[in-house]
C-alpha cells in the first residue's frame, strides 16, 4: 500500500545579489510504494518585490536497490527554478545515494540549462539560437556526517554539497551546511539547516556569497 508524506519548509536568507533578506517557502509531497518513491514539490518566493508566484518546481523518482549488500537509492530528477524575472534554469539528472548510520553520501550528474522566458524573448528580440545555454555533465555530490546514528530521535550534523532542494551549483561552488532534526514520532519530525555559500572556492581566492536558514517539518501519514 502506498504511503504518502509531506515536507514543508521555510527559508530565510541573504546573499550578494539579494536586496536585503529573502524569504521562500516550499512544500514537497512524496509517495512511497514498495522500493519506489515518487515526489514532487513547489517553491514560492515571498519577497514583497518579487513578482514570481511559483519560483520553482521539482519532480523526482527514486528506487531502492541492494548493491554489494548495501541499500542504494537511485534517483532521477527534474527541477525548474526561476532565478530572475526573465531567466530560469532547468536541471535534470541522476543521483545515487548511500546512507549509513552516521553518514549520507550522494554522487551524480546533472544537466543545467539557463533560458530566457518567452516574454523576455519577445520583449528583447532574442534570437532563437540565443535563448538558452547548456552546461552538461556537472558533477553533483553530498557528503553528510551526523553525530548520532540515523535511528536516533534527534541529530545534528554537517554536510558539504553542491545541491539543495531547488538549487544546483557547479561542483566547484560547494555549500557548507549545519543540520539537525528532532523526531517526535515515526510520523512527525521537525528539522533545520543552515547553509553557507562561498564564491570562488576552487579558484583559491574565495569569499562570502550567501547564508540561509531553513526550518521545516516532515509528516508521514
Amino acid at each position: 500500500m502506498a504511503q504518502p508524506g509531506i515536507n514543508i519548509y521555510t527559508e530565510l536568507g541573504q546573499n550578494n545579489i539579494s536586496q536585503g533578506l529573502y524569504f521562500k517557502s516550499a512544500a514537497m509531497g512524496d509517495l512511497n510504494f514498495g522500493n519506489n518513491i515518487l515526489s514532487s514539490g513547489i517553491q514560492t518566493s515571498l519577497d514583497k518585490n518579487n513578482k514570481i508566484l511559483v519560483s520553482g518546481y521539482t519532480i523526482n523518482a527514486s528506487r531502492y536497490l541492494i548493491l554489494q549488500r548495501m541499500v542504494v537509492e537511485l534517483q532521477g530528477f527534474f527541477t525548474m527554478t526561476e532565478l530572475s524575472e526573465i531567466i530560469h534554469t532547468t536541471n535534470w539528472g541522476i543521483l545515487m545515494k548511500i546512507r549509513r548510520n552516521h553518514f549520507e553520501m550522494a554522487i551524480g550528474s546533472n544537466f543545467k540549462t539557463y533560458s530566457f522566458s518567452e516574454q523576455a524573448q519577445k520583449a528583447y528580440n532574442i534570437m532563437n539560437d540565443a535563448v538558452s545555454i547548456n552546461e552538461t555533465f556537472n558533477i553533483i555530490y553530498l557528503f553528510r556526517y551526523n553525530v548520532k546514528p540515523s535511528y536516533n530521535k534527534w541529530n545534528i550534523g554537517w554536510a558539504i554539497t553542491d545541491i539543495d532542494y531547488f538549487q544546483f551549483n557547479q561542483e566547484t561552488n560547494p555549500i557548507f551546511k549545519l543540520n539537525g532534526y528532532l523526531r517526535f514520532s515515526n510520523k512527525f519530525s521537525v528539522n533545520a539547516d543552515l547553509s553557507y555559500e562561498l564564491a570562488g572556492f576552487t579558484n583559491l581566492a574565495f569569499g562570502y556569497f550567501g547564508l540561509n536558514l531553513k526550518t521545516g517539518l516532515i509528516w508521514n501519514f
Binding site: 546573499n15 550578494n16 545579489i17 532565478l83 530572475s84 524575472e85 526573465i86 531567466i87 534554469t89 543545467k112 539557463y114 538549487q167 544546483f168 551549483n169 557547479q170 566547484t172 561552488n173 555559500e197 564564491a199 570562488g200 572556492f201 576552487t202 579558484n203 556569497f209 550567501g210
Partner: peptide
C-alpha cells in the same frame, strides 16, 4: 577545475 560565478549571480547579471 576553476570555478565560474554562482548560478544565482549569473542569472541576476544576465538579466
Amino acid at each position: 577545475e576553476s570555478t565560474s560565478l554562482l548560478p544565482e549571480e549569473i542569472s541576476a547579471l544576465a538579466e
